[in-house]
Lab assay of single mutants.
Amino acid sequence: EEWMVEKALMVRTGLGARQIESYRQGAWIEGVHFKRVSPSGESTLRGTTWYNYPEINKFIR
């Protein structure tokens, strides 16, 4: 699984929702560690946020 939603990321990493938000707003790079995608497939600020687990795992190492 490369891309996953927040709940799956929480299960895989043990991070809480606030921790994920903090990383997203600070250290993680949009387009690398996470992306927002609307149902139409376009990038957007209001779409579902998807997280790239392999890239996040590399960051944590």
Rank of each mutant, 00 (worst) to 15 (best):
G41R: 06
R12N: 06
M10D: 02
S43V: 11
T49H: 10
W50I: 13
Q19T: 06
E6P: 03
W28T: 00
P39C: 10
G31W: 06
E30G: 03
T49V: 15
M4V: 11
I20G: 00
G47H: 11
Y23F: 11
P39G: 13
R36S: 14
T44P: 12
S43Y: 05
E42P: 09
R61G: 08
A17D: 05
A27I: 09
G31E: 05
G47W: 13
I56C: 04
I56H: 00
E6M: 14
V37H: 07
Q19K: 06
N57K: 14
W28C: 01
R12T: 06
L9I: 07
R36A: 08
R12I: 12
M10V: 06
P39I: 13
L15E: 01
R18W: 13
N57C: 15
I56T: 01
R36P: 05
G47L: 11
W50T: 04
I60V: 06
R18Y: 11
E30Q: 06
V5H: 11
P39L: 12
V11E: 15
Y23V: 02
R46T: 15
T48A: 09
E30P: 05
T48F: 07
G31N: 07
I56M: 01
G31L: 04
K35S: 07
G26Y: 13
R24E: 09
N52Y: 06
Y53N: 02
E55F: 03
G31S: 04
L45G: 14
Y51D: 00
Y53K: 02
R46K: 13
S38D: 14
G41T: 09
R18G: 14
G47S: 12
G47T: 13
T49E: 05
K35H: 04
A27V: 11
R46S: 15
E55T: 05
L9D: 00
V5Y: 06
S22R: 12
E1Y: 09
Y51P: 00
R61I: 14
E30C: 04
L15N: 01
F59G: 03
Q25H: 10
W3G: 00
Q25M: 13
Q19L: 07
K58C: 06
V37D: 12
A8K: 07
W28A: 00
T44Y: 09
W50D: 02
A8E: 15
V37R: 06
R18H: 14
Y53M: 05
S22N: 13
E2I: 13
M10R: 07
S22Q: 13
E6H: 06
G14E: 04
L15M: 07
R18K: 14
G26K: 10
I56F: 01
K58S: 07
R61L: 15
M10E: 05
G16I: 09
L15V: 02
G31T: 04
V37Y: 09
Q19C: 08
A8F: 07
H33N: 00
A17E: 09
Q19E: 14
R36E: 13
I29Q: 08
L45Y: 07
W28N: 00
K35L: 07
Y23P: 00
K35T: 08
I20K: 00
Y23N: 03
H33G: 02
T13K: 01
S38M: 11
L45C: 11
A8D: 15
P39T: 13
P39S: 11
E42Q: 10
G16Q: 13
R46N: 15
T44E: 14
P39A: 12
P54C: 09
I60E: 03
W50G: 01
S22L: 13
R12P: 02
S40E: 14
W28Q: 00
W3P: 00
V11A: 15
K58F: 07
T13S: 05
E6G: 06
W28P: 00
K35V: 12
K7G: 12
H33M: 03
V5W: 06
G14P: 02
